[in-house]
């Protein structure tokens, strides 16, 4: 039997909002009783409507945020960040690529330093080697040597996204959580990044949790698919099963709403527009 790297058991996360001058506040149930298992070297894709709790779940898995209730297990060990804190070992093992890359990059740090920092903080690697590693990674995600000493604001949206991916990969994590990692990327770079992720997975047996709303991407990258809807996992199964036999109405709607890029559909739309 293969190893289970990540397991969630009945995870719940509530947020309390409001409580201002005129209202008493209320509770948002962002994640409701979600369970899953991911084996080593596999990819679990999470899809779902905007606001359904995907990023919240990502923060729980990467131990940034604690669940309101339920258990998170990494390599079979129960994790409780509230009680035990987070060991450097754990921090290295699990990395996240955030949904908004700009907010997660320090504006005063050059890209070379952004990439070298995880090595500086977590290893005793000499500066020259850190530099080499950072440069290699920069090239791997399709950026150039000339970008090494630029600041985050000097990049386009898609370039910043690749920097965030590069940074997460610097420490050779075991589990990588990617929150909409390719949604801001044009198709060529998207293909490059997806291929890179697939290569790394083959090479290092990396485990991915891949959050995306793009079904064609999910179909390409996932082993298992979980569909969330209003905080609940309404569908969970192998990629083949979910794509060939979607059971929940929301999954079916999701398939039906995918934009059509064939010539006949364009003709039909233009005809409607002219009418």
């Amino acid at each position: 039997m293969s190893e289970v790297v990540l397991e969630g058991r009945n995870l719940v996360r509530d947020y309390h909002v409001g409580g201002g001058l005129f209202s008493s506040g209320r509770v948002v149930h962002a994640v409701k009783n979600v369970s899953f298992k991911v084996e080593k070297g596999k990819t679990l894709a999470i899809v779902g409507e905007s606001g359904c709790g995907k990023s919240t779940l990502a923060r729980i898995i990467t131990m940034i945020d604690a669940p309101t209730s339920g258990d998170l297990l990494i390599d079979g060990d129960k994790v409780d960040i509230v009680k035990d804190g987070l060991t450097p070992e754990m921090r290295r093992k699990v990395q996240i690529v955030f949904q908004n890359p700009y907010g997660s990059l320090n504006p005063r740090q050059k890209i070379g330093d952004v990439l070298g920092e995880p090595l500086l903080v977590n290893t005793a690697m000499p500066a020259a080697e850190r530099r080499d590693r950072a440069m290699q990674m920069l090239l791997k995600v399709g950026l150039g040597p000339e970008h090494f000493s630029r600041y985050p604001h000097m990049f386009s949206g898609g370039q910043r996204q690749r920097i965030a991916i590069a940074r997460a990969l610097m420490l050779n994590p075991r589990l990588l959580v990617l929150d909409e990692p390719v949604s801001a990327l044009d198709l060529s770079v998207q293909a490059q990044v997806l291929n890179l992720l697939a290569d790394l997975q083959d090479e290092f047996d990396l485990t991915y949790v891949f959050i995306s709303h793009d079904l064609s991407v999910v179909r390409y990258i996932a082993d298992d698919v979980m569909v969330m809807y209003f905080g609940e996992a309404v569908e969970y199964g192998s990629r083949e099963r979910v794509f060939s036999d979607p059971r929940h109405d929301y999954t079916k709607t999701l398939f039906a709403a995918t934009p059509r890029a064939d010539v006949e559909s364009i003709k039909a739309r233009l005809a409607r527009r002219a009418a």
Binding site: V47, E49, Q99, A184, H213, P259
Partner: peptide, 11 residues
Amino acid sequence: EPTTALDVTIQ
């Protein structure tokens, strides 16, 4: 890129 963060139904 107005809909990059949105699933296809909301898009």
